[in-house]
């Protein structure tokens, strides 16, 4: 039996986070009625209808679900690339002061450049070349899939995810207690074992945090990447193209999907962080 007060606190803890979204929805419903113009603010049920039927084919643009899938694959490719370069480089830079001095100024030069500012250069380099070009596939279903993965897009997403992952890896490793490394060496760890068994696990909470932020930024770079020439799919494409067709309900449904997917990915990471790395919160 729950006591009255715990029941109450449970109810409020569920209630409080939904207050603002509900208010927003009420304002939306009211404003849409007042404005009465679909091109400025469509009624909420139009948008909810689109979200409720994500597999429905939208005029010449494919379905919401298929566009999200394409976007997810792109983001994951760029992001995995960012992680597979950022983590090893960051760990090495964090451990070897010489490598840090060698690379840091160079990398910091590029850090302030927004991913979007890379677009012209990236277009000049890669144009509309895609994974299909790389694998030499020119026809068939596979071509359609691979051609969706433009190098230029993957590069923009990579740039977005790379810096947070790199920075948090450097800081994670640089912050590892010297005594832990010395203990491992005295216990007979080789240089490689120090990396794998001490530096990586000790820096992992920080690295995971960087991965989480990096995924968020990669996902945010998506729209700019999907506005690049040659893009004929993806949520970013969907909302920009829907705008030209004055389908603001599709624009809003697309934006909400971007938000939901991003939030879900963030939640998953947060969950892993809390479960696996409780020791870090509790140490000292």
């Amino acid at each position: 039996m729950l006591s009255d007060s715990t029941m109450k606190s449970q109810v409020t803890s569920i209630l409080i986070p939904v207050i603002v979204p509900v208010l927003l929805i009420i304002v939306w419903i009211y404003a849409a009625l007042k404005i009465g113009n679909q091109v400025i603010l469509p009624p909420i049920d139009n948008v909810l209808n689109l979200l409720a039927n994500p597999t429905e084919n939208l005029i010449s643009m494919g379905s919401l679900a298929s566009n999200i899938t394409v976007s997810l694959v792109r983001v994951l490719m760029g992001y995995l690339l960012a992680a597979s370069v950022g983590i090893p480089l960051g760990v090495i830079m964090g451990y070897y002061a010489l490598v840090f001095r060698l690379m840091n100024t160079f990398l910091n030069l590029f850090r302030p450049i927004p991913p979007l500012a890379w677009v012209p250069l990236v277009m000049a380099w890669f144009g509309v070349a895609s994974m299909a070009t790389a694998f030499g596939v020119e026809t068939g279903k596979l071509y359609i899939y691979l051609n969706n993965l433009k190098f230029s897009m993957i590069f923009i997403i990579f740039i977005g995810g790379f810096y947070p992952i790199l920075t948090s890896s450097i800081h994670g490793v640089a912050g590892v207690n010297r005594t832990l490394i010395d203990s491992a060496r005295v216990l007979g760890a080789s240089e490689l074992q120090v990396f794998r068994k001490v530096l990586l696990p000790a820096a992992m909470p920080s690295i995971i945090n960087g991965l989480r932020i990096g995924l968020g930024i990669s996902w945010m770079c998506l729209v700019s990447a999907e506005m690049l020439p040659g893009s004929i799919s993806g949520v970013g494409y969907l909302i920009t193209h829907a705008y030209t067709l004055a389908s603001i309900d599709i624009v809003i449904a697309g934006m909400i999907s971007i938000g939901i997917v991003g939030m879900t990915m963030d939640r998953i990471f947060h969950h892993i962080e809390n479960r696996r790395y409780a020791w870090q919160r509790l140490t000292r």
Partner: peptide, 30 residues
């Protein structure tokens, strides 16, 4: 460092992400 010579530090030398038993087993693991 030689396996014949062990060292015990003042504090904060245990690997915080490993349970006690794995901490003790880490030398043989290496």
């Amino acid at each position: 460092p030689l396996p014949q010579i062990g060292l015990v530090f003042q504090e904060y030398s245990l690997f915080p992400w490993l349970p006690v038993i794995d901490n003790v087993a880490s030398g043989p693991e290496f």
